[in-house]
Design a binder for these strands. Structure first.
Lengths: 187, 187
DNA sequence: ATTATCTATAGATCTATAGATAATGC
DNA sequence: ATTATCTATAGATCTATAGATAATGC
């Protein structure tokens, strides 16, 4: 039942990808190691050959999801004439709202992160620093401090609006929240 | 071991209060029924005389936490000359950040709410409607639609900034996030 | 007599480990 | 020979229930 070294690396990678999606969909506590391995096409026991603990995987899967988000931010920003508007338009969509498994980790698991281990939190901290640096370079503003401040508050608005749009049980209100977030960033 | 009807009502109330705090501190999945009852000074089995399920308590505890927040918003808004600034100042503090158990449910459990039952989500929806109505009445703005939009995006900024400030592993960055959120609301 | 609470436990689930198995890589 | 994966299971924990207990409220 052994596989090639290359295949093993692929398997490991698939576990991380599967976890990155399922954690965002169901929460860190919403899926167990056994189910996760089954979704990745492997058996329960094999997990601990790749990771030392579930927390270890949580950290790695989170880091990967965050890296993807940053890459997407960069590519979206490069596209349009007004980068911040472009990011807000891409972020605050019903598609993103309805597919948390492929979306922003902060919106999907933000409040859970603060209750988890130092490795996840370090990954989030690193991501936020990079994202703020990126956005601060795109925002118009008098001083560097002002641009950083605008970058941070913009990101906060996006995350907060997505959390609220997902929490709400009413499609019209949910859409109103997405629209209000976009309008505020573009104002 | 029976207690008076009045005492039983008090016990039930204490379970809800304890849950409202512990859920916000540790997450809905972070504390079990047994530990929760112990914290409330009762035994595990007694729980199901008061509630039909843990989900039932989650809904009731969430509704209570949200009601408290709305009351606080109202009282803070009445205090100052600039109500929105007053709310931002009261919300985005290190004290709030470091005490999620007594703070905003959306910041503490926002991303978990979307993964839970219809009763919790209905409570959040009702709260958001009330909070937006309240804030929209306090915001300056040309049209009613503009004031609503500003109310929603302001609340989103507060929630997002608190989630980010708590997720981050660095005190300076965390403080910078709180400050940026405040500056943005007050601008 | 009713009922709020207690003790005890069923049944499910979860993380992690031990040891067997079989294919790779030297 | 090494090692990636598998089967099986230990040990802990979690929700919910059953039945006993003892104090209230008629």
């Amino acid at each position: 039942m052994k596989v090639s070294r290359e295949q093993a690396a692929e398997n490991r990678d698939r576990i991380v990808e599967t976890a990155a999606q399922l954690f965002r969909e169901r929460g860190f506590e919403g899926i167990g190691v056994a189910d996760l391995m089954k979704e990745a096409g492997l058996t329960h026991g094999g997990f601990y050959g790749h990771f030392s603990s579930k927390e270890d995987l949580i950290a790695e899967a989170s880091a990967r999801a965050l890296m993807r988000s940053l890459a997407l931010f960069t590519s979206v920003a490069e596209r349009g004439a007004d980068p911040l508007s472009a990011i807000a338009s891409a972020y605050l969509t019903s598609r993103h709202r309805d597919n948390p498994g492929e979306g922003c980790l902060l919106a999907a698991l933000g409040s859970d992160v603060s209750r988890h281990g130092p490795t996840v939190r370090r990954a989030v901290t690193g991501h936020l620093r990079s994202a703020v640096d990126l956005l601060a370079g795109l925002v118009p503003g008098k001083s560097k401090a002002r641009r950083r401040q605008k970058a941070i508050s913009t990101y906060a608005t996006l995350v907060g609006a997505m959390v609220m749009a997902r929490a709400v049980d009413d499609r019209a209100l949910s859409q109103e929240i997405l629209d209000a977030g976009q309008a505020s960033v573009k104002a």
